[in-house]
Amino acid sequence: MASTTQIPVPPATRVAPSSKPSKQGRGRGRARPNFLGGLGGWLWLAVIIVPIYYVVVTSLKNQAGFFTSNPMLPPAEPTLDNYKLVLENDFAMYFVNSLLVTVGSVVPALLVSFMAAYAIVRGKSRFLGWTNKLFLLGLAIPLHATIIPIYWMITKAHLYDTLLALILPSIAFAIPISVLILSNFMRDVPNELFESMRLDGCSDWAMMWRLALPMTRPAVVTVGIYNALGVWNGFLFPLILTQSPSTRVLPLSLWTFQGEFSVNIPAVLASVVLATLPLLVIYVVARRQLISGLTAGFSK
């Protein structure tokens, strides 16, 4: 039993791991209830839920209530004033900034990475091999270590305090992991399919969009979600490369709210809730796709 060697998984299942639980899980689950596992599961749920509960409950208290009431009990008179206060403080603008930066970074990053991954997998030139190695190197290096030269470059390019200052480096930083995941998936596309298209006289451009893209869609979704989460929640670039409220993004706005609302902890926590809300909505609406999308690329 223990000698079972690695079993090659057929490409099809790996390309599109279905979101429905597979059979073996069902088989095992029926054996006999796993009390220990269940206990651990509920325990971890408590670990996850308690902080979230605290944040939500506190955000509904007024400031006096926060100091006097029991922190873990729901407020006697819930109030939405804190949310109003946050929304009045340009929250919508920060939200739009975050959205622009995320879309502006992820879409181009996906596009250039996809093209690069296609070239790297299908091409054979030494140049492409070298390019691929460079990207792999980029995975190993904590790119944030280069923030000082980036700050200098952005300053010299007169991009400091613009959304573009956040977008450009974010694109660059997203490329290595995107190319890696996309090219891993692209290798699984049967060569014969490319050959037959080639024989039909299709160009690389056509093969890329009409064959490679549909076949690697799960990976594209993975990479897109992964990068979007990273950019949406990014903090270091906005902290260093922007300053004015008009270019502020959500994570940075939380940090500044924390200073501005000072002792008004309920308002600070309301801003945390509001900043998370958009992603939560997406999660509720498209949970399956998000989860299976994230899994598809990393469980390779």
Partner: peptide, 21 residues
């Protein structure tokens, strides 16, 4: 006029001045 909290201000102003902005 824009307002910053004390610590945030001290962190940001120098980078902004250094950037000529």
């Amino acid at each position: 006029l824009d307002f910053f909290a004390n610590d945030a201000y001290k962190t940001k102003v120098r980078t902004a001045v250094g950037a000529g902005q």
